[in-house]
Computed example of a mutant assay.
Amino acid sequence: MTVPAPAWSPTSLLLLLLLLSPGLRGTPDCSFAHSPISSNFAVTIRKLSDYLLQDYPVTVASNLQDEELCRALWRLVLAQRWLERLKTVAGPQMQGLLEAVNTEVYFVTSCAFQPLPSCLRFVRTNISHLLQDASAQLLALKPWITRRNFSRCLELQCQPEPSTPLPLRSPGALGATVLPAPAPHLLLVLLLLPSALLLLVAAWCLRRRGTPCPGERARTLRSRGAEDARPGPEAEPLALPSGRRPRPAPAGGCA
């Protein structure tokens, strides 16, 4: 039994050749030998804009790195994803217009782009701005699409975040802080302070030791008065009343 060979129509063969052509589908290192950007992409995009709601909400990345070689390609990658998403919610007539614009930017899918980085920030805009931007990026990329190798553009990059100010030192971290050297006059005062304190303490002790107690001062005055009134050797001692004994002087210290 002979199996008939499949019949290939000219359209099928043309599509197969387009898929297998390395110049149109791009090489793994994302370079193109022949330009995949058509000469009437602006007309195709304008036709779609005439049928779309101008304020239909979409999102665009606001912090793509401003890289001269890759920025246009990155913005087209994001626009192509939005076109694919809009095709799933559009009617038959609108799907045809969306597919025509998607064909103009579909060449970006031939490059093995990495998944979108988590650092990307998206802001809301309308579909008219997205389509205008896609047209501007195709226009900027067209002269260079066959002259450059876009292999280093396969990973979308974000703009670097602004530098974060250093946090204030906590009280616990002051131990590692170098303290300023004390002033010379302050250092001199600190050196002389112990000596001055010792002199004050010594002076206070000497004054304290040389001051008599109040009782001793009174007895000294009485003894001086008694010596002045004491009779000569010939005078007899004063007689004390009976039953009274002279009070002995204290052994020492204040009475």
Rank of each mutant, 00 (worst) to 15 (best):
A112S: 15
R121W: 00
K87L: 12
A112C: 09
V108I: 14
L98A: 08
F150R: 09
A100Q: 13
R148H: 07
L174D: 14
S151L: 06
V101W: 08
L76D: 07
L83P: 03
L139T: 11
E68A: 09
A183H: 10
H185C: 07
Q93M: 01
Q80A: 08
S118G: 12
P117G: 03
H129W: 13
S118M: 03
L64A: 00
Q95R: 15
T109C: 09
R71S: 05
N126C: 14
C158Y: 11
L139Q: 12
R152E: 13
H185L: 15
R85V: 05
G91E: 09
G91T: 14
L53Y: 13
L138H: 06
V58Q: 02
L97N: 04
G91K: 14
L97D: 06
P143F: 07
Y106G: 13
A72D: 12
Q80P: 02
L179D: 01
T164C: 09
W144P: 00
Q93C: 01
K87T: 10
V89E: 03
L86K: 04
I127R: 03
L179G: 04
A181W: 12
A100S: 12
P167V: 04
F113C: 06
S128L: 10
S163F: 00
G91P: 07
L64W: 09
E99T: 09
Q159W: 09
G96E: 14
